[in-house]
Design a protein around this nucleic acid. Structure first.
Lengths: 344, 344
DNA sequence: AACGGTACCGGTAACGATACCGGTATTCTC
DNA sequence: GAGAATACCGGTATCGTTACCGGTACCGTT
C-alpha cells in the first residue's frame, strides 16, 4: 500500500475539470458553482485529500513555523516555551525549539538553520555568551519578524517581554534588610547578561535606599550554576567579616549556596539568610524551605507568542515598547527571621 | 533593503549560462568544466547564495525534520529530548517537539500536523491516555519511519528504546526488603501505561522472590503527580496496618509521599522507608535525601535518535528488537536504615 | 439587435530547484 | 580520415499549488 497521496491534479482528472477550478472549490473561493463545489468536496472526502504543505510553503514562502532559540531548557525557560507553544499552536503555528547551550557560535548556527528552513520568524532569548548581535540584526534587515523574551538585550531593537528584574532584585534585597540582615552578599550571574545586571541593580538600589554601604567584596559574579554557587558561597563564608545573608539571582545558585551553608554548619535563617530568584517548586520542599522571587513564566511565554503574532501581522509598524511583567516575593523559612521561631 | 535572496536563476542570467549548469556546478556534479564551476562558485560567494530549502523540500519530498511527540517535558523526558536533539543536529536533522499533554486527542492532532508539515519521520513516547494506536499505525502504513522510546507500547510494532522498568522496580523493592522493611506499599502510575505496570511487576517479583505475600491494599494506582501521591500516601498512612515503606514509581510521586510522611510526623528511614524512580537531582538536596532508581535518560534519547536514523536508511528491513537500558539503585537516607544512625 | 455585466471555468506562468534527454564540439582510436 | 567516445552545456518536464488572465456562455437592458 504505497500509493502516493492524491493531488489536486488527480481530482481534476477524475472529475474532468481543470486544476484551477478544483483549487478554487477547495479554498471555497468565488468563481465556482455550488454544484461543482459539491462534487469536488465529495471526492476530496473520498480520496482523503490533504493539501501538500510543502508545495504551499514554496508558493507562499511561508511555513507557519516559528523558530525559538533559547540558551537552555531549565525550569523557567521550559515553562516559557510551553507558554509560547500554547499560543502558537492555537494560532496555527508550529514551533521549532533550538537550544544554544549558552554558546554564541551555536546561537548563530541555530539562527542560520532555522532561517533556511524557512521559519516565518523568531522568538529569542539570548545566550550568556552573546555580545554581538549581528546575526539577529541581519534577520531583522530581511524584514523577518523577531521578538525577544526573558533574556533581553537592549542593543537589540525588537519587541520584547521580560520580567521586572530590577524590581525583583530590589524586593529580595529589601526583604532581607527588613528581616534585620546587615551584611548582604549577592551571587550575581555572568557580567554581560542584562538579566543578571538588572537584578544586581535592584540589589544596589535597595541598599542605597536603606543607606547601607555597598561592599564590592560581597558582590560575586559567577555562572548560573549550582556548583559555581557552592564554591562562591564557601568563599563568602570564610571571609573575615562574613555576610549574614545571601541573595542569589537564580534558584539553582541558591541550591548551591544552601549546600555550602549546611556544610559549614550554619543555620538558616538565624545564622544566615538566603533568598533565590524564580521560585522553582522544589524550594518549598527543602528544609528549611527557601525564599524566592516568583515570576509568571508561563505568562511571559504566552505574551511573547502573542506579541510575535501581532508583530508579524503589522511589520510596517513595529511596536518596540518593552513589556515588563511584575514579580512577587515569596518569603519562606530561609529568610523569615521573625517568624522562624514560631515555625520551630 | 528588501531585495529578494538570489536564486539559481539569477546566477544563470548574470553568467549567461543555463540554470541546469549552475545547479550542477553548485552541487559539484559532473558534466561541468572546472572553469565554469569556478566562475559560478565565485558568484555564489559574492551574492551569498543559499539554496532555497522550501523548493528542495518540495522536489525531494524530504524536509530533514524529525517530529518528536512526548506526553510532557518533565525532567526525564526533557533530558531524553536533549539527547535526541544532540544526535539529530549532528546528523543534519531538525527536531520539532510536540507535547501531547498526556491527551490522546492532542497526540492525534500533533501527529497530523507534523505529518502534513512533511516531517521525515517520528520519534514518539505515548501519552498515558492512549489506548488505541491507529494514528501511529497509519503512519507506519505510509512507510514513514517511526521509533518509540521511554513510554513504549507493545501493541505498537516499531523499533524501540526504553529502560529496564521491571528490573528497576525489582531493585527498588528488593532494596527495601534487604533494609528490613516488611510491609511495602507501592504507588503505581496509570493502569494502562506499560512503563507503570512493568515497574509494578518488578515490585511483585521482588516480593515473590522473598516470599512476601502481595497485599492488594498496598498497591495504589494514581496519576504521575505530586498532589495525587500526597493524598494516596495520606490514605496509606492512616490504614490500620500501615506500610513501613513506600516505593513510588516516579520521583514526583515520591515528593508527594514525602510531604504526607512529614505531615504525619513520621521519620525516614526508621518509621518508614521511601524510594522513588528516575533520580532527579533534587532528591539529593532534601532532608532526608531520598533514594531512587537512576536511569541514563540522555543516553536513551541519543540511542532513540540513532535508531531512528538507522531505521530511516533501512526501511525495507526494520529491526524491531527492543533496546533495553539498565538502571541503577541509588540508596540514600530515606531508605538506608542501617547506615541511617551513622549519618545522624 | 447590440451591448454590458456577471458567473463560471480553463490555460498558463510562476515558486526554486533537480533529473533527464539530447545536442554540440572536441578528442581519441585504428 | 571516418567513427566512436567523451566533455560540456541547454532545454524542458516535474514537484503541488495558487495567481492571473482570458474566454465562453447566459442574462438583462436599451
Amino acid at each position: 500500500m504505497l500509493n502516493k497521496p492524491p493531488t489536486i491534479k488527480d481530482i481534476a482528472r477524475q472529475l474532468n475539470i481543470s486544476v484551477s477550478t478544483v483549487s478554487r472549490a477547495i479554498r471555497n473561493a468565488s468563481d465556482v458553482s455550488a454544484e461543482t463545489k459539491k462534487t469536488v468536496m465529495a471526492l476530496v472526502e473520498e480520496l482523503n485529500y490533504q493539501p501538500n504543505q510543502l508545495a504551499l510553503n514554496l508558493r507562499s514562502k511561508q511555513t507557519h513555523t516559528i523558530g525559538v532559540i533559547v540558551p537552555n531548557l531549565d525550569y523557567v525557560l521550559s515553562m516559557m516555551v510551553r507558554g509560547i507553544d500554547e499560543v502558537a499552536l492555537e494560532a496555527g503555528y508550529t514551533v521549532i525549539i533550538c537550544q544554544s547551550n549558552e554558546s554564541y557560535g551555536r546561537e548563530i548556527l541555530n539562527a542560520r538553520r532555522l532561517l533556511d528552513r524557512g521559519v516565518d520568524g523568531f522568538i529569542v532569548s539570548v545566550s550568556s555568551e552573546t555580545n554581538s548581535f549581528d546575526h539577529f540584526k541581519k534577520i531583522q534587515e530581511k524584514n523577518i519578524p523577531m521578538v525577544v523574551f526573558d533574556r533581553v538585550a537592549s542593543q537589540l531593537k525588537a519587541p520584547s517581554v521580560r520580567i521586572d528584574n530590577t524590581g525583583g532584585g530590589f524586593m529580595a534585597t529589601e526583604h532581607l534588610i527588613e528581616q534585620g540582615y546587615k551584611r548582604i552578599a549577592v551571587l550575581a550571574g555572568p557580567q554581560n547578561l542584562e538579566i543578571s545586571n538588572s537584578r544586581l541593580d535592584g540589589y544596589k538600589n535597595a541598599l542605597k535606599k536603606h543607606k547601607i554601604k555597598i561592599d564590592p567584596s560581597l558582590i560575586i559574579h559567577c555562572d548560573f550554576n549550582q556548583d559555581y554557587a557552592f564554591f562562591a558561597t564557601e568563599e563568602l563564608l570564610s571571609l573575615k567579616k562574613r555576610p549574614d545573608a545571601i541573595f542569589t539571582i537564580s534558584d539553582r545558585m541558591a541550591l548551591g549556596a544552601m549546600l555550602a551553608i549546611k556544610k559549614k554548619g550554619l543555620q538558616m535563617p538565624n545564622d544566615i539568610g538566603l533568598i533565590g530568584f524564580n521560585d522553582e517548586p522544589v524550594l518549598n520542599l527543602l528544609t528549611p524551605s527557601i525564599s524566592s522571587i516568583e515570576q509568571p513564566s508561563f505568562e511571559v511565554g504566552k505574551l511573547a507568542a502573542k506579541l510575535f503574532i501581532e508583530t508579524m501581522h503589522n511589520m510596517d509598524n513595529i511596536d518596540l515598547s518593552e513589556r515588563i511583567i511584575k514579580t512577587k516575593l515569596i518569603a519562606r523559612e530561609s529568610s523569615l527571621k521573625i517568624n522562624a521561631k514560631k515555625l520551630k
